[in-house]
Design a protein around this nucleic acid. Structure first.
Length: 266
DNA sequence: AATGGGACCTGCGCGC
DNA sequence: TGCGCGCAGGTCCCAT
């Protein structure tokens, strides 16, 4: 679910709500979520700990604890966090000494919880390319001109640029008027410029509006994001294109559903 | 090397 | 009303 803007929203919320508080209890209702160490050791290691700092790398949340330990939360597709009363559908609950709980919510149970001494050698961290907001136009342009893969697949390749997923890839391509099927190395200089500009603009806009709540995603207080109302193409198959009034198409690109306007996006 | 499909899971909405 | 199917924000693994 969460792409960069949703993860960034959660990061800011966590900074506001859990820094310095003490974890006094942990319950895990879906043991499969805990990838390491073994469940009992995970619980023992987390209890008594206190979040010092919240980090984000791409779509992954990293909670820095004391004594050089890190609680790593990968939300995958349907994960989100809720701070408050323990919730009925929680997959895991971290109880704090102030009586509140950080609930790990995840309809599809595809997420991951890990307790480790480091995070940089985890596969889904170490293989990441540069963060989108740290990527210069020069570097972006070089990547796009060099690669032959379809542009949408490239945008979603975390080893190339970290943080973009299926919602924002579609959204950015629509705004840049580029077909998701175009081979990366066929983009012209003005197209690459427009794409870069929109990448930064749309993702910043999404952070500003607290991410997109298409289905499950909520912020830490359980509120919807504001960005889904501003999406122009994602999930709008059969609706009218806001630019040209043509019907919006849906195809599969990189084995993911992809909406686009065949008239506007060339 | 790059690409495509399936697996991992649950639950929703749709059509019959 | 009930059931089966397709589909969903990510990532990894395998076959080609």
């Amino acid at each position: 679910m969460p792409e960069l803007p949703e993860a960034e929203t959660i990061k800011k919320d966590l900074q506001k709500y859990i820094i310095g508080k003490k974890i006094v209890g942990v319950e895990v209702f879906k043991p499969k979520l805990v990838k390491e160490p073994f469940l009992e050791e995970f619980k023992k290691g987390v209890i008594g700990q206190s979040p010092q700092k919240i980090l984000r790398r791409a779509k992954v949340l990293i909670i820095q604890l004391k004594r050089g330990r890190f609680l790593i939360i990968h939300l995958r597709i349907s994960g989100w966090l809720f701070y408050g009363e323990p919730k009925e559908k929680s997959r895991a609950v971290f109880k704090f000494s102030d009586g509140n709980a950080l609930n790990y919510m995840d309809q599809r149970v595809l997420g991951e919880l890990r307790l480790r001494n480091n995070y940089s050698d985890l596969k889904f961290i170490k293989n990441l390319g540069p963060e989108l907001f740290n990527l210069s136009y020069k570097d972006f342009s070089e990547i796009v001109r060099k690669k032959k893969t379809r542009i949408k697949v490239l945008l979603m390749d975390q080893a190339v640029i970290a943080g973009i997923g299926n919602i924002y890839a579609q959204e950015v391509l629509f705004r840049a008027r580029i077909s998701p099927l175009r081979k990366s190395n066929t983009l012209t200089e003005p197209e690459i410029k427009l794409l870069y500009k929109n990448l930064i603009k749309v993702l910043k806009e999404a952070v500003q509006y607290g991410g997109s709540s298409i289905d499950a995603y909520r912020d830490i207080q359980g509120n919807k994001g504001g960005m889904e109302k501003r999406l122009k193409i994602y999930g709008k198959k059969g609706e009218l294109c806001p630019e040209c009034n043509c019907s919006i198409s849906k195809i599969t690109v990189g084995s993911r559903g992809t909406c686009f306007c065949p008239h506007c996006q060339k």
